[in-house]
Each structure stands twice: as C-alpha cells, then as structure tokens.
Write a protein that binds this DNA or RNA. Structure first.
Lengths: 143, 143
DNA sequence: ACACTAATTGCAAATCATTTGCAATTAGTG
DNA sequence: CACTAATTGCAAATGATTTGCAATTAGTGT
C-alpha cells in the first residue's frame, strides 16, 4: 500500500543507508506490507514476477533489506528461510505437523532481554529477538 | 562420550520410536554429545566422514533425530540450518556481525508459554520453544 | 530537463545444499 | 544362525541460492 504510513519509514531507512529506491525494491517492500506474515523468497517472487522482476533480484533485495534491518529472518522450521518486517515484529506458535501459525505478543521479552544484557560480558544492547513456540495443534493432535 | 549419562536417554528415545541403533546414528549422536553447541550438517559430516559414513546418511540421520525430537533446529541466521540436542536446550545471543554466540537460560519462558497457551484457540500444549536475541557484540561495535 | 556515473538489474551459467532411486548391507528378532 | 525390513552408500537428480557480465537506471549535479 502506497498509503501505508510504515512504507515511508522503510524507504527512509533504505535511503539513509545509501540504497537506491528502484522499482523492484519498492515492489518487494509492498509485498511485505500487503502480506503481514513471514514470507519466503518464493512467495515474494510469485507476487512480483508479473512485474518483470527476476528471481535473482528478489534474492538480492531480501539480502539488502535484511542488512538494512528492514526485514529479519523468522525461524519456522520450514524448508526455506522466512522473513518479516522488523517493525511488524511479533511471535509465533507453529504447529510441527501442519505448519499452522498463530501470532502472539510477548512484552515480557524486552524485560528479559535487559536482564540478560546486564549480565553479559560480550553484549551491551539487543538489536532484535526471535521467540517461537513449537507444538502440535489441537486439530493435528486428534488426527 | 559413551559414559555420558544423557547418551542412554537419547538411544532409548530412538529405540522406543522403532529406529535401529546403527553405527552411523551412534556416531552422529556422539558428535552432538561431544560438541555441546548448535551444529550444522557439514560440521557433523566432517566429524564422521573418516568413519566411513556418507554425507547422505548424515542428512537422513538429522531428519530422523529431529522427528524423534532428539535434536531440534536453532535459528542462528547463518546460511545453513543448525541443530542442538533437545535436552541441552538453552537460548543464545548471536552477534549479527561476527556470529559470536553466548548462551543464556530463561526460566521465565515456560511461564510465558503457559500464558500464551491458556489464551490460544488452536494449541493446548507446547512441545518446545526457541528464543534467540540478536545484537552487535562489543568488539564489533568498536571496529 | 539533460548528462553522468556508480549502483542495480536480468539473463545464463555455476555452485551449493539437500534429496531420491536402487542395489547391497546390517540391526534386531525369533 | 537365519530371516526380513530397515538402513546404508553410491551416483545422479533436484532445488535453492549465487556469480559473472553486459545492459539499464536512480540519484546527483548542471
């Protein structure tokens, strides 16, 4: 969505880091803004391939977005790597059988992170975190 | 280590699930017992290749161990998948620059998980979880 | 608006990790 | 000790991701 207020935040981050705002990059960004869940390279490519964007460009764009901290990896134990927008951060419960994903917030994690940092000899601040719970969902438990 | 008390726990799990205790499987298990940190397929293979064990067997063994819940995936944002023994579970702070890993415990996560479960319409229990913090370590922050 | 230049792109080919098919071997059972 | 299904190793296939390179383009200054 061109009118998503977060769009500007991300494009500003990219500009600040010296990356050009090219058509493919904006397309990929919009895929993330329009699909607020963890996405893999293939999903993104399927959404932009019609708009003359190569698969390689998708890979390269994901790398750039990741290094610019616009997106980050999410551990979903699927066969490929998934990413989500950094500002959309939340946590997931993932069904080990069917892959069902439920979101949840965990405000206590920030407190926990502070605690860990205060005791660490190597780290003094946290960039971001990843908390995933894995389970068998009720449906799969029956089957 | 043949004398590691946890070795028996894992071999029992494998037996119970009907998997044969073959030489390659015991070799892979021992690699995990002797290297208490997240490992990838390549690391394991390098440790067992001398003992006439094929790379394919390593991959297949990791799959079996994962489905038997002897090991599970850890999200370290590296280019390949890492695993650790389930009973060795702890959390990590990973440096986004140099990959330095520091371990920590987080006993409050279990409470948090219970809390999430009590509110979830889809899940009624947690199998395991994954909490990783990502940061730039003090050393990399200077450089 | 126009030209310049480095960054970015698309394509084709290469690489890397992981998987599959199949015949030979082996662990666990009786 | 023999039996049988599970497991293994090899070779080849697959699938995801990366690389080289020439053509294109965004952002800059004019």
């Amino acid at each position: 969505m061109k009118n998503d207020p977060k769009r500007k935040i991300y494009t500003e981050i990219l500009k600040t880091k010296g990356y050009k705002l090219t058509a493919p990059r904006l397309l990929v960004l919009d895929v993330f803004l329009q699909n607020r869940k963890p996405l893999n390279a293939d999903f993104v490519y399927e959404k932009v391939r019609t708009k003359k964007t190569d698969r390689v460009t998708v890979y390269r764009t994901l790398k750039i977005f990741e290094s610019a901290r616009v997106i980050h990896q999410v551990n979903l134990k699927k066969d490929s790597v998934f990413f989500e927008l950094t500002k959309d951060h939340h946590h997931h419960i993932v069904c080990l059988e069917c892959g069902l994903i439920e979101d949840f917030d965990a405000c206590t994690i920030d407190q926990l992170a502070k605690n860990v940092i205060s005791k660490s000899p190597y780290f003094s601040s946290i960039d971001h975190h990843s908390l995933e719970l894995f389970a068998i969902c009720k449906k799969c438990n029956k089957g």
